[in-house]
Amino acid sequence: MDLEVLKHSARWLEDGHRALLVTVVKTWGSSPRPEGAMLAVRDDGHVMGSVSGGCIEDDLIDRVRQRGIEQTKPEAVKYGISAEEAHRFGLPCGGTIQLVLEPLTAASGIAELCAAVESGKLVARTLDMATGAAHLEPAQATDGVLFDEARLLTIHGPRYRMLVIGAGQLSRYLCSIAVGLDYQVTVCDPRVEYTDEWDVPGTTIVRTMPDDTVMDMKLDERCAVIALTHDPKLDDLALMEALKTPAFYVGALGSRRNNAARRERLKEFDLSDAELARLHGPVGIYIGSRTPPEIAVSILAEVTAAKNGVSLPELLQVEGAKAAREIAGTGEVCGV
């Protein structure tokens, strides 16, 4: 979404329009959008992106349509300071949101920022509130928005990476959704009969062996690894290396029986009990999924929970839910 906001902003400037870039820099209480969320408003009221549930957008659009983009320098504004304003602007629980309104110019460097992000770079953009000029520099793999009234620093680019083992049908659905979730997706499959037909936009395909790929990628705590081939010769190679890394999620497709056998095999690769305990398998949450698109949603729901630090109850996990069904002898588990 952020990239689309930036790309539209750059295009509007190129076409001779004025544009206002709006960035969430701080929130208090509940807020519909996180810090760093962006909205672009064109001088005729067209918009791209979101900074709230809609009411703040409406106010900003009305302001631009009534008065145009008058300002020449960035300014900070707050919405929802009072309970009445919080209700008016759709901020729940009396929340407050602070925004930076930035009139874009050539000095904003939006086209350069778009080019850097589209090439897969992680970039820090620092905006000078006094002049409106911005400069770019390489960033570390970290989230964060820093605003001290004098400058605004934002991070742009693929902050999370995902390695998918296998280029089969399920991988196509999973990777398409993962790209939309802002992952930098790499698909590893040495089998040419699969890779020759791979054409999912926004992903990178590699034909190296999975263990080599894991080591080459130097996985960190912002990485997820998902093995989907059903072939132990490929999946196990990736898992035995991935479980030794700080990756926040490592999972493998397969039945409960296959995953139990996989864990036994992985013990032969000198993995510790703590490392083996990190393996998610059967992968995904239990939603009764049967088709590849449904299985992809199930897997990415579990990945998202892990990414956000949410511990899922056992009944939502595939193994726990199916075991409970067998014990109960029915087709439902507490409504799941």
Results as ranks from 00 to 15, higher is better:
226 I>A: 09
43 D>F: 09
76 A>H: 06
119 S>W: 06
285 I>Q: 01
197 E>K: 14
113 L>C: 09
314 E>L: 15
223 C>T: 06
149 E>T: 12
113 L>S: 04
298 S>C: 14
287 I>G: 12
232 P>R: 03
55 C>E: 09
86 A>I: 03
93 C>Q: 13
103 P>W: 07
79 Y>H: 12
45 G>K: 10
271 L>E: 00
106 A>N: 08
261 A>W: 06
158 P>K: 15
152 L>G: 02
146 L>S: 12
271 L>H: 02
275 E>G: 05
297 V>D: 04
188 C>D: 03
232 P>E: 04
68 G>H: 07
318 V>A: 12
296 A>W: 11
113 L>F: 04
210 P>S: 04
221 E>S: 12
26 K>W: 05
277 A>L: 12
246 P>I: 05
97 I>Y: 05
1 M>R: 09
194 Y>L: 14
235 D>M: 11
162 M>N: 08
115 A>L: 12
183 Y>A: 10
201 P>C: 05
29 G>S: 07
3 L>K: 01
123 V>F: 03
246 P>Q: 11
128 D>R: 13
76 A>T: 05
304 T>N: 15
232 P>L: 07
84 E>T: 07
312 L>Y: 10
25 V>K: 00
83 A>S: 08
73 K>G: 03
295 I>W: 14
316 L>I: 06
12 W>A: 03
128 D>K: 13
122 L>S: 09
313 P>D: 13
210 P>Q: 06
111 A>C: 08
95 G>P: 08
217 M>G: 02
175 C>Y: 01
300 L>G: 02
133 A>Y: 07
311 S>P: 02
243 L>A: 00
258 N>V: 07
323 A>M: 14
44 D>H: 09
55 C>I: 02
121 K>T: 03
133 A>V: 05
104 L>S: 05
173 Y>C: 13
308 N>M: 15
209 M>N: 03
328 A>C: 08
205 I>G: 01
307 K>T: 09
297 V>N: 12
329 G>W: 14
321 A>H: 15
164 V>N: 02
63 R>I: 01
296 A>G: 08
3 L>N: 01
243 L>V: 05
112 E>P: 01
21 L>C: 00
116 A>H: 11
282 P>K: 09
205 I>P: 02
268 E>S: 14
122 L>C: 09
28 W>L: 15
57 E>M: 11
284 G>N: 09
259 N>W: 02
104 L>M: 11
112 E>A: 15
109 G>D: 06
136 L>D: 13
331 G>E: 13
83 A>L: 13
146 L>I: 10
60 L>V: 02
52 S>M: 03
107 A>C: 05
19 A>D: 00
239 L>T: 04
276 L>A: 10
239 L>Q: 02
35 E>H: 04
153 L>H: 05
176 S>G: 12
326 E>W: 13
282 P>C: 14
140 Q>D: 13
184 Q>Y: 04
51 V>H: 06
15 D>F: 04
48 M>C: 11
185 V>D: 02
162 M>W: 07
88 R>Y: 06
87 H>K: 15
28 W>R: 15
221 E>M: 09
303 V>T: 14
